[in-house]
Design a protein around this nucleic acid. Structure first.
Lengths: 222, 222, 222, 222
DNA sequence: TATGAATGAGAGTTCATTCAT
DNA sequence: GATGAATGAACTCTCATTCAT
């Protein structure tokens, strides 16, 4: 800074390039890792590919993550944690018909999951969960169980309000959840989708799903 | 045939044990490979494990399959072939209410799939489909599309008979199919299932699913 | 073999080349490893160098030894263990003056150690023992302690027979042992020996050592 | 110098702390390096450990020493310089019995060596001498040869005064020297010492050694 | 002068594949 | 046909060294 410059105009100093990059590194690496892990699977992913996708060398990656496995854990944690808490609140505070709440939440879930990459994580956990029991555990307790619980509360709310009929408490939630998870997985398996159908529309898929599901759950009006 | 053998007791010549095993080799290898690939994933599976599970040496495996990839392809092709044709016939010949047909078929599908290992194939295709586009294509053409078609015909049958209401023709079948595929995948991811629920009951899961699904699809009777 | 050769002359079948090499491999690798470890130290030694010195590839080495460290342990065991038991026997069965026994054993020790490479091991343990506590432990209990005990018994024998005077029981044995170990180390540090003295003569060194040592230990005759 | 400082108390100007530290850097690094090299060996020592032990960053270390090897050489050179000259004088000026002189010097040697780290240098030269022939040369010329000469002069003095008997001139000095060097090495190999003996007492070790050694060297009195 | 983020060559180890027997 | 010893390319991870700040 020259002595004539007024420091007032730049009260917040712009960090030097190196410094700024340093703070961005973990995030850049996590993003790159999510992409490569989802694309290749954990075993087939090469750390060098992840590093070069983040624009750094192999060695740099190990400056931030102690091992490939730790990187994987960090990706899962970074992508998933704190995803579901907001949905919990929504269920508790919403006022109005349960079908509408369900509709809203299912769509919101997809929007979030699709945007932050957690659909790819779901695929990963299914494929490689066996090799990472600790992570699978983490994923189950942090993601699957809460998600199932959330749907269970939704069903209970509908039942209490006379909107839904009763359903098996253990497997009932899975009836909806399974189709949602399938959508996530399906999204990452382009080779398995019929090309003639064009790109799958998550909107339409979910709408159809909700239509069928709610049609089944709603109490029959005479 | 040695002069000491009595041909009388075995009117249809049973080949001597060694001979039979020799001819059975590829099948034994495919079976072992299916198990190990499903259990470990393609990348993490070791050919040595497959070979020793089949009771042969590593070298022998390569006598029958040119590479690990070829073995994988053979496993998928071998397991998939001719799965659905019998179901096609069932739909065409069945007489009676469509819900009953659907119920029967869904349970029969699981029984078959579970027994012959095709649930494992579903998991494999989802995990590795991207790296074997040709196989993914094959799987889609041979399994997914027919399965979806089958359900579509079921839905059409119900609609024609006044039993089902109309549903989106593209995504409608997936509404049921997705939950079935999920069951198959779920079966191979023990780490993701809640231990407190005990081993999952496919029967109960499918019954609950059909209950909800059919409840939604059935025309409301006043 | 030409058809005219009489097979009678070779009644014991020479094992096929592959087979013979297979059985020789561990020994060849241990020999190569001893050489390279002593020459470079454990840390600086490259498994590839060891393998190629044994005439095999890197991968082959890991067929016989699970890791570099296991290879090192095997070298130590192979080179040293069972070395000392024969000396134990010698002390117990020898009849005659203790000074003569000591002389005989010190020279025999050098001959053995020098021939089988255990002098190099001594140097290694001293240099890198800290990084392999388990091995250092092994070496101390299997080599150092027995050697010290052996000398202690020699001194006790001399004392009992009125040939030696008493000496500190803890450090007394080291007075001889230290000079023997030094010879072993010195042998592997050519750069530390004065070139003008020519190659060191272990014979002369040990003779001089014994002369001084025994001269001090012998009871003064009036 | 700040105006508040009183110059009276320090007639010889003490440089301000930062300045002094700056000039002390190489020395601090050498000290840290000696410790880490002795503790870990050259190969296993990490420059980062040395730097952080000296309280500077890795980069700073390379400001003063061009490479790890150069640092090693500097450590050895720095520690060795001018070790023995004082002992030379002692031999020439001492008046009294040679055994007493020898006793004094051996103990003094240990005190010095132990205090200034040259026991560690001995270990390093033994371990790494082969890879640093120039240093080994240096060490031999500056340390070993003078030490051996010193002992040779001691023995000659004793012989001339009728206190010692004659001994091989080449290996005779090593008889004492070897045990001293062994003590130095032994000190740095805790894993090789028997735990039941407790920490080794250099005093007792040396006293026992001298007892045996001198007992042998002294002319027999009738 | 001092930093520490970044590098990349090089190490140990694994495993699909080959081939002499 | 069957074996299993041998291979070597490929991978993860380390760390001396560099250089922008």
């Amino acid at each position: 800074m020259s002595p004539h410059e007024s420091p007032v105009s730049t009260p917040i100093a712009v960090p030097p390039k190196r410094e700024r990059r340093k703070h961005a590194r973990p995030g850049e690496l996590l993003e790159a890792a999510l992409h490569v892990f989802v694309d290749q699977g954990f075993g087939a992913a090469k750390v060098e590919d992840i590093a070069s996708r983040a624009g750094v060398s192999k060695g740099t990656l190990f400056l931030y993550f102690a091992s490939k496995e730790e990187l994987f854990k960090a990706v899962v944690r970074d992508t998933i944690v704190g995803q579901l808490s907001q949905f919990q609140v929504a269920v508790d505070t919403f006022e109005g018909p349960t079908p509408e709440l369900m509709r809203t939440m299912v769509h919101a879930w997809w929007q979030h999951s699709h945007a932050n990459g957690s659909t790819g994580i779901a695929k990963l956990m299914l494929s490689e969960g066996k090799h990472f029991p600790e992570l699978a555990n983490f994923y189950r307790t942090e993601v699957i169980d809460p998600a199932r619980g959330l749907i269970a509360r939704l069903l209970a709310r509908g039942l209490a309000r006379g909107e839904f009929r009763a359903i098996d408490p253990t497997y009932g939630p899975y009836t909806l959840l399974s189709s949602m998870i399938f959508l996530a997985l399906w999204h990452h398996a382009p080779g398995l989708r019929s090309p003639q159908d064009g790109p799958p529309s998550a909107q339409a898929y979910l709408e159809t799903l909700l239509d069928a599901y709610l049609g089944g759950m709603l109490v029959r009006q005479t």
